[in-house]
Design a protein around this nucleic acid. Structure first.
Length: 278
DNA sequence: TACATTGTTCCGTC
DNA sequence: CGACGGAACAATGT
């Protein structure tokens, strides 16, 4: 699943492939992914998504790629930008012209002959045309500080996480801290030795210090290990699981040997080690 | 077949 | 009324 590190890697890839190149053709193969706002609802699709993207990007260059939390944006050299959310299966790939791309939704053909594709099998992702001078606002709206770019001191993290909800649920709340999803929330909690079911407000100072240190550590570790090529997600066939607890129910904890447990919190699977996350 | 997965939204409860 | 939990919704591969 694309969370902060995967979106950051996607942004780095787009900077290599896209920045400075001119867009010579725009193909919208699924008009429903072009939306007015962050949403999965078909009713929020732009009326003429193809026309909108072509008007914004034909003949334009991408001058910048930005990221906040799990959101990214392509900033054009004209008046327009494109906000992107990868949803649960979105990714960007580059291919030679004429190469078919399964689940390709938007195709940007460049002046070097490459085609940069937004690919999204599950179609929970979207692209949102916006004015360039609104892109920073749109990127940050409703989000807490970016978990990697703005690492929080322990006391700041504690303040942002003041809720009776479980700490794992609070960590995934993008309004409190932007970037953690299911995988990196449970991995950071495992690294910090904190039980994901604990009430967030009940953590002590040492536990906040541990989390403040382990969250950026988890994200940076993932960046270092996922490389800078095309993204492959853990749920895809043939991709092995690089994580300590995520999707490892019943397997021995690599730190203490106890069996990894699973519980559902707010409708999402949580994995943790009952032995060393007391 | 039912399930898993995301962010958003809505509804009921306290 | 704010906080919170839970469920629904979108789509589709396994």
């Amino acid at each position: 699943m694309p969370e902060l590190p995967e979106v950051e890697i996607a942004a780095r890839g787009l900077r290599r492939w896209l920045v400075g190149r001119s867009v010579v053709e725009v193909g919208v193969h699924d008009v429903k992914v072009v939306r007015r706002k962050l949403s999965t609802l078909p009713s929020d699709a732009v009326e003429d998504g193809t026309g909108a993207l072509r008007a914004d990007w034909l003949g334009r260059r991408v001058s910048e790629v930005r990221r906040v939390g799990k959101r990214m944006a392509l900033v054009g050299n004209g008046p327009r930008a494109l906000l992107v959310h990868l949803g649960m299966s979105g990714k960007w790939v580059t291919r030679d012209a004429e190469v078919p791309v399964k689940h390709g939704r938007v195709a940007l053909t460049l002046d070097d002959g490459q085609v940069v594709w937004f690919v999204d099998p599950r179609r929970f992702g979207c692209v949102i045309p916006v004015d360039r001078d609104e892109v920073d606002t749109a990127l940050a709206k409703g989000l807490g500080p970016d978990a990697l770019d703005t690492p929080l001191a322990a006391n700041e993290l504690q303040e942002r996480m003041q809720t009776r909800s479980a700490i794992k649920v609070a960590l995934m709340d993008q309004q409190r801290l932007a970037g953690l999803g299911n995988i990196h929330a449970v991995e950071a909690l495992w690294r910090a030795g904190v039980d994901p079911r604990r009430a967030s407000s009940s953590l002590d100072a040492a536990e906040w210090r541990a989390l403040a240190r382990r969250i950026p550590e988890q994200l940076q570790w993932t960046l270092d290990h996922e490389g800078d090529g095309e993204m492959n997600y853990i749920n895809e066939a043939g991709v092995d699981n690089p994580f300590a607890v995520y999707a490892r129910e019943g397997e021995p904890c690599r730190r203490c040997g106890d069996a990894i447990a699973r519980v559902v919190q707010s409708g999402r699977s949580t994995f943790w080690c009952p032995g060393c996350q007391a």
